[in-house]
């Protein structure tokens, strides 16, 4: 299924951001998922979850702190 999703995972600590991202991608064949996190570890883990599953990932640092990751396929 191709769709758009937004996940606000700020404040969640390891391993929850990775698990929630993995669950969100599970039934998607393509589309766009935006994930917001606020820790470097969560940023790296979510990025790896996306790339390992064939998604193109771009990372943007948010002005108030934290990161927005855009996963596209």
């Amino acid at each position: 299924m191709s769709e758009e999703k937004t996940l606000d995972l700020r404040g969640l600590s390891c391993p929850e951001p990775a698990i929630k991202t993995k669950n969100a991608l599970k039934d998607m064949t393509g589309g766009k998922v935006e994930v917001m996190v606020d820790a470097g570890t969560a940023r790296d883990n979510v990025e790896r979850v996306g790339r390992d599953r064939g998604w193109e990932v771009t990372v943007e640092e948010l002005p108030g702190g934290g990161y927005r990751l855009s996963l596209k396929k």
Binding site: P15, A18, I19, K22, R48, V49, D52
Partner: peptide
Amino acid sequence: VRDLVMMRD
């Protein structure tokens, strides 16, 4: 171990 089992990572 957790990531290996849970995420195949």
